[in-house]
Amino acid sequence: MTMTLTDLAPEEKWRALQDELQERFGLNADIEDGEGKRLFGTTWGNDLCRAIRDDEKGFSSICVTAGQMFTHLLKQGEPFSEECDAGMMRVAVPIKKDGEIIGSVGGCGLMPADGEIDPFTIGMMSDVTEETVEKRSPDVRVADEDRVKEIQDYIQKRVDEIIG
């Protein structure tokens, strides 16, 4: 039988960590199982990602394809950060038990320090207007390499505390 995150710690602890990451780092935080499925939905860190995800075309062309890539990276078993086509990034740390990846903790919706949110590209890949992108972008937090490493280290520390 495959081990799950809730075999390691109660659901409440994972939910609390998800909320903590959203509040502390501005992530669209989530806890995922070993197949990349969210256990508790998403806590929104910014309005732009929510607009993209709520848009059927944006969801399928940006969020779904990014999710597939992120799941592939997760299976490599190392912490990662990777950009989606909207110009934002996901930061995640896999959770392993006895060498098996049983889930991940992290989130998306941060803009790389050397990147930019491109309203034109988002508009081409979704039905979200450039005006909406501009209006919903101000709360997207920026993260440089040091911040990404800080987030990954924090996640690992908290996961270790939760699972012992």
Score class of each variant (00 low, 15 high):
L48G: 02
E131A: 14
P138K: 09
E35N: 15
L21N: 02
C108D: 09
K97R: 15
V159C: 06
T42K: 09
M69D: 01
K13E: 07
E82Y: 15
V133A: 03
D144I: 05
R24E: 14
V128D: 05
V64T: 11
F80Y: 15
V142F: 08
P94M: 11
I155T: 06
V64M: 13
M1T: 06
P138E: 08
D160R: 14
V142I: 15
L21A: 02
L27K: 03
E131C: 08
V93D: 03
R90S: 12
N28Q: 09
T43K: 10
P94F: 08
D30S: 08
M88C: 05
R158T: 01
R38V: 07
I102T: 02
E130I: 10
K96G: 07
R38H: 13
C49G: 11
A143S: 11
D153N: 15
V105A: 06
G36S: 10
I155A: 03
I151E: 05
G115D: 10
T65H: 01
V142Y: 04
D30G: 04
A113G: 11
I62N: 01
M111R: 14
D54H: 04
F59A: 12
R136Q: 11
E56I: 12
A113L: 13
A9V: 00
V148H: 01
G115A: 10
V159G: 04
E56H: 13
S126N: 13
L74W: 01
K57E: 12
I155F: 05
D114L: 06
E150L: 07
R136L: 14
D160Q: 13
D30H: 02
T132D: 14
E131D: 14
V91A: 05
A16L: 05
C108L: 06
A66M: 00
M125G: 06
F25C: 00
V105D: 05
K157S: 10
D153L: 12
C84V: 00
M3I: 15
D160K: 13
R158E: 12
D33E: 07
F120T: 15
L110Q: 12
E20T: 09
S104G: 14
A113S: 14
M111I: 10
I122L: 02
D55V: 09
G106T: 05
I155S: 08
M89I: 11
C84K: 00
G115T: 01
R141E: 03
P138F: 08
D54L: 10
